[in-house]
C-alpha cells in the first residue's frame, strides 16, 4: 500500500497494518509519540485497533525533551 507518512510518500509492503504495526515496521522506538491518521488524533491505547490502509495520511511525532 501507498500512504503518506509525516508528509512524505511511503510504500509499505502490506495490504493493511494497524498503526502499532506500522510504528514497529518503521522502527520508531521513541517512548513518547503523538500519532494522527487522516487528521484524527489516535491515542496510544488505540494504536493496536486502528487500521492504516492505502491512501491514508499518517503523522508520527516524536516527543523530545528540551526547552
Amino acid at each position: 500500500m501507498k500512504i503518506t507518512l509525516n508528509n512524505n510518500p511511503e510504500t509499505v509492503d502490506a495490504e493493511h497494518l494497524t498503526l502499532q504495526e506500522l510504528i514497529e515496521y518503521k522502527n520508531f522506538t521513541f517512548r513518547l509519540l503523538v500519532t494522527k491518521v487522516n487528521g484524527s488524533l489516535i491515542k496510544k491505547e488505540d494504536r493496536i485497533i486502528t487500521e492504516v490502509r492505502d491512501g491514508d495520511n499518517v503523522a508520527v511525532i516524536h516527543l523530545i525533551s528540551g526547552g
Binding site: 517512548r31 513518547l32 516527543l63 526547552g67
Partner: peptide, 18 residues
C-alpha cells in the same frame, strides 16, 4: 508549547488537538 519534558509536550499536544 514551551515545556521542557517530553511527557508534558505529549500531554499538551494531545489535549489541544483533542
Amino acid at each position: 508549547e514551551a515545556f521542557d519534558r517530553a511527557d508534558m509536550k505529549q500531554m499538551i499536544i494531545e489535549t489541544v488537538l483533542g
